[in-house]
């Protein structure tokens, strides 16, 4: 892929930047680049010059309660990365931006205005032979005032919200075997399993990586519409909930639905299968069909 993709095809073209754009803005003080990888040591082996590291495991989560940072911890973290509320924050990472989308979604909860993903992520940058360095630049001094709140209602769903959502579309982004219930964990993630296998009844199965091309970039809007709007039956839905195992893969799908396809109200259920599949008396469907809406 040498041709530059036209981002204006997407609902929110500003949510994406190209590798070229990033290269041109390397010295732009209003832009902060954050690298967020599944492999927490990858940044150290080489990153885009000037990029700061974000470790999804230790930087974004509360160390005790299963939850994200609070507003004050977020403000301290953002300040330490040289970010102010006016900063354009560009995320990129490995594995088709999977973890970058997760970090972007968490920032969204705190109401940060200008958040973007670098299309194609680390893979595309490296494939284009662009520079990767091991030198870590000191972030600019910055003061991020603590946001009034972490908004847990607009883009985040809890299990009560999922129960209240029945009858409206849901997307399960896990692998087909996790969806059907043959497997209670993702391959290689045994410890993050659940007691019961299957999916939330009525949720359509669209594994998250379907949204990405081989080179890590997002598929075209027409292709995404065929996958989500048509095949998964989202149609013109006003509200959609996406979930996976712990909410990271579904952040990627959340980004696609919210920003690339422009669905109005997309929420990520980060409790996901590690909550649902372990909870008492919640309805579960098994097999490769979505199953009926409970109580319908």
């Amino acid at each position: 892929m040498t041709e530059e993709k036209d981002f204006s095809q997407y609902a929110h073209p500003d949510a994406l930047v190209s590798t070229d754009w990033v290269a041109q803005h390397q010295d732009d003080p209003s832009v902060v680049l954050l690298e967020s990888n599944e492999d927490v040591l990858l940044y150290e082996t080489g990153h885009i010059p000037g990029a700061q590291k974000i470790d999804w495991h230790t930087d974004l989560n509360d160390p005790v309660t299963r939850d994200f940072l609070g507003p004050e911890q977020f403000a301290a973290f953002a300040s330490a990365k040289g970010i102010t509320p006016e900063t354009t924050v560009v995320f990129y990472g490995d594995k088709s931006n999977w973890w970058a989308a997760y970090a972007l979604w968490v920032f969204t909860l705190f109401g940060h205005e200008d958040l973007r993903l670098m299309d194609g992520g680390r893979q595309k940058w490296a494939a284009e032979g662009r520079e990767l360095v091991t030198e870590v630049q000191a972030p600019a001094a910055a003061e991020y005032p603590a946001p009034a709140q972490r908004d847990d209602s607009t883009f985040r769903a809890f299990r009560e919200d999922v129960l209240a959502h029945f009858g409206k579309p849901m997307i399960d982004v896990r692998s087909p075997l996790e969806y059907s219930g043959e497997r209670t964990h993702m391959e290689g993630y045994e410890q993050e399993g659940a007691l019961r296998g299957g999916h939330i009844p009525s949720a359509a199965s669209v594994p998250w990586a379907k949204a990405a091309n081989e080179d890590g970039t997002f598929r075209s809007r027409a292709e995404l519409e065929a996958i989500y709007t048509e095949q998964a039956g989202l149609g013109a839905a006003e509200e959609v909930i996406a979930y996976c195992r712990i909410g990271e893969r579904s952040s990627h799908t959340w980004f696609v639905l919210q920003h690339l396809l422009g669905y109005d109200n997309v929420r990520n259920y980060d409790g996901s299968w590690t909550e649902w599949g372990n909870a008492v008396r919640l309805p579960i469907a098994t097999g490769d069909q979505p199953g009926a809406v409970p109580g319908a």
């Binding site: 495991h57 290689g188 410890q191």
Partner: peptide
């Protein structure tokens, strides 16, 4: 175990 997620350590 604090620096690396437990699921990675499983590897």
């Amino acid at each position: 175990s604090k620096a690396i997620t437990p699921l990675r350590l499983r590897g």
